[in-house]
Amino acid sequence: MRRFAIGAATSGALALLALTVPAAHADTVVGDTNVSNVVVNGGKNVAVGTTNKVTFKVTFTASDPAGIASGQTYLYHGTWSDPDAFWTQDSPSETICTSGTTVTCTSTYSIWPEYDLHYNAFAGTWHFGAYAKAKDGDSAKRTNLGTFHVQRYSKLTVNASPEPVTKGRTITVAGKLTRASWDDRQYHGYTGQPVKLQFRKAGSSTYSTVKTVNTDGSGNVKTTVTASGDGTWRYYFAGTSTTPAVAATGDYVDVK
């Protein structure tokens, strides 16, 4: 996979250099080739931590009466004319297309945060496009067929105490919401975020939301509830465009 992470201080000339053929030019259609229906990661966002490799697939539909010879996909952050990060394949052979006049082409991406995501500013909305070349030499390239999100991986903890507790007494539920920083390869508290405190009664398989609490300046969250019965407490974060949803592993409290 070819990757470019272009910092804000990098010249526009380097950004243009990143968009090598067939990516360098605007949308083009030669003949009756068509590309459509691009799907990134099965329609899900792509969450990346500080060190882990993340692999996902990008698929699209290509068609031409003469048949499709090859395909290629593009993922980029910013604008097509001046992206600050750009991912594609080293060669069209890295995208596998089925046979026929209307085919499905699949590209596989492997993302390493230390090489492909240098700045937290890369989190959020990314764009995708696709290219296909037909067996008769026709081709089609679409540079902005939709968007998806690349997100900073999140973690959430919970601790309910005391354990066990007498019925009617106070339970303190504490936790912390953190997310990956691509600036320094560490996890830091995600501040000022609404986190739901949820409870699952003993013998039940579903959680119910009890209240919503905001994280503090360090990503910590803490609240109190009245012990009414045995069950499991957890925190749940619904996520943002830059950070995926996450649920803490529940903490069971025995109520006497």
Rank of each mutant, 00 (worst) to 15 (best):
V30C: 07
V253H: 02
V54A: 10
Y236P: 04
P194T: 09
T55P: 00
K135N: 13
L19D: 09
K155F: 08
A26W: 10
S241Q: 08
Y190H: 09
N34E: 08
A18Y: 07
R152Y: 04
D230P: 07
E114A: 13
T215D: 04
G129M: 06
T95W: 12
G137Y: 01
G42A: 02
T55H: 08
D138Y: 11
S93M: 05
N45A: 15
K57E: 14
P194D: 10
G124E: 01
P22M: 01
A134Q: 09
R185N: 11
T215A: 03
F237I: 01
N45L: 06
N45F: 08
G250T: 08
V173W: 05
A18E: 11
G219V: 07
R185G: 07
G78T: 07
V210L: 15
G7C: 04
G71L: 02
S161A: 12
D82R: 15
D254V: 07
S91G: 10
V46I: 10
V213E: 09
T212K: 04
S107P: 04
D183H: 08
G78H: 04
S107D: 07
D251G: 10
A245T: 07
T223N: 05
S93V: 09
I96F: 11
A85I: 05
Q186D: 08
F199W: 02
R2Q: 09
E163H: 15
K201A: 15
P194M: 06
S107M: 02
V255G: 04
V103I: 05
N214D: 03
V213H: 09
W233M: 01
I171V: 14
D116S: 15
T28M: 13
Y131M: 03
Q198I: 00
T243G: 01
G42T: 00
N144S: 12
N37Y: 09
A5L: 02
N41H: 06
G217K: 14
N144I: 06
V255H: 14
T243S: 12
G192V: 02
Y115M: 14
K256M: 00
C105E: 00
K133R: 12
P83M: 04
K57T: 15
R152W: 04
V213C: 00
Y153M: 05
G250Q: 12
S208E: 14
I171E: 00
F4M: 08
A238Y: 02
V158Y: 00
F148C: 13
T88A: 08
I96G: 03
W87F: 12
G229C: 07
V54Q: 13
K155H: 13
T224P: 06
V21G: 13
T178L: 06
T223P: 04
F56D: 01
T242G: 00
Y115A: 12
P162S: 06
T106H: 03
T240K: 11
N41G: 00
V46P: 06
H77I: 02
C97H: 04
H118C: 05
V255W: 10
G203A: 13
G219D: 07
Y187Q: 10
P162G: 03
N41L: 06
K155S: 08
S161N: 08
N41S: 05
V195Y: 05
T79L: 02
T147A: 01
R200H: 04
T28H: 09
A245P: 07
L16W: 13
I111T: 03
A15T: 05
H127Q: 11
T28R: 13
G219H: 11
T28I: 13
